[in-house]
Design a protein around this nucleic acid. Structure first.
Lengths: 218, 218
DNA sequence: ACCTGAACACCGTTCAAGT
DNA sequence: ACCTGAACACCGTTCAAGT
């Protein structure tokens, strides 16, 4: 058997992380096991631990890698508002395509993904003239809203090729909401009728604009 | 050995769920195993499956139970804005005390926890005169913001008796942010200096008010 | 220094057997 | 109808042994 440590494609943290992302994209979080990863990398499961501390760090590193790529691809915009909308939509689409990353964004705010996102939200607000506590609190509000939608999206089946699964999912939720008591749940029952053909992306942007309008109104 | 199925405290879904919440509150999500749960309930691990489909349903049922209790305790308020603030803060404090429930809120929007929350947000907006798409989108924005903060809180160590752990956590995040490049991260570095003594609860309310102001400005 | 892969401790879940 | 608890299939992680 050829010694692995002399191959040109030797193990490295980057190669491990990229392979992990492939497994996550293909089969979701359940598909990422050290055994599957080792098999794909043609190595022993223990070898991975030489480069990565544990599974928690592996998932965090995969998220950092993904977000860094997304953020690097975001183009500059003319206005601060447009810049915030563009970054927000880029994140929305990234979680749409890689739903496993949604819950990860909540984990460790010190890691690289979080500062990358936070800077892209806060810098435009500075350009708008915000500062001090208002700046910090406004940026945090936008960040939390974006993460909240990301987390929700990660739970929904959105990345199906055809729209059938998504329709079925929304239809099931709407049906459950319509079964609620009309006296106790007037709003939710009305919302149920709007569920099936609502545009997630437009609704997401509406919320961004709501927060931006709130900032402008101060 | 006395037969279990004749005791007055026989197994029931409610007793299982309440015991599960005790384990979750005491030791976090890792402490909830079917073996630990069965030991605490003085039964076999398989007996639980007679009442609960699987672990996913157990966690969802625990969350529903928790949120139902929280929502039942929320008092009515004079104005729609006050009602929304009160519900939001009640959820904030509930996740603060039971951080394991944060990620669960993202799971299944059809379950009872989600409609309970959504109704309490949407009904006051209806009272404000909102309707149609604007009503649905505005309520969704508030919901996503609240869930985003809840998810973030669940990841942070907040429920420690003394403030030492929280201080250490925020200090560590701030230190990591201060190590970033000054040219590339002007905002994040400034935010780092505000991290240690910021008031999570006040910042959360600031975001709620920002969205409410955005709604009012439309 | 880096890799191998068996072994360990632990899960969720099932199911034949009991009462 | 409900409970028991061993058994199964599967994890993450460790570590003595290799190169």
């Amino acid at each position: 058997m050829a010694p692995r440590n002399q191959r040109s494609d030797a193990l490295s943290k980057e190669r491990i992380v990229e392979t992990a992302i492939e497994l996550l994209d293909t089969g979701g979080e359940a598909a990422l096991t050290f055994r599957a990863l080792a098999a794909r990398l043609e190595t022993g499961s223990g070898a991975i631990y030489w480069h990565i501390a544990d599974k928690s760090e592996l998932l965090a590193a995969a998220t950092d890698h993904l977000i860094a790529g997304v953020m690097a691809g975001v183009v500059d915009e003319a206005t601060p508002q447009a810049a915030i909308r563009t970054v927000a939509l880029a994140l929305f689409d990234a979680i749409d395509a890689h739903p496993w990353a949604g819950p990860q964004l909540f984990r460790d705010p010190g890691r690289s993904a979080m500062p990358l996102i936070f800077e892209r939200i806060g810098a435009p607000l500075m350009a708008l003239g915000l500062g001090g506590q208002t700046l910090f609190d406004s940026a945090s509000a936008l960040l939390h809203y974006i993460l909240g939608v990301a987390g929700q999206n990660a739970a929904n089946p959105r990345l199906v090729p055809d729209e059938a699964d998504r329709e079925a999912f929304l239809g099931r939720v709407a049906a459950q909401w319509l079964q609620l008591d009309a006296q106790a749940f007037p709003f939710v029952r009305q919302a149920a009728t709007q569920m099936r053909d609502h545009d997630d992306r437009a609704q997401f942007l509406f919320g961004i604009d709501l927060i931006l309008a709130g900032i402008a109104a101060r």
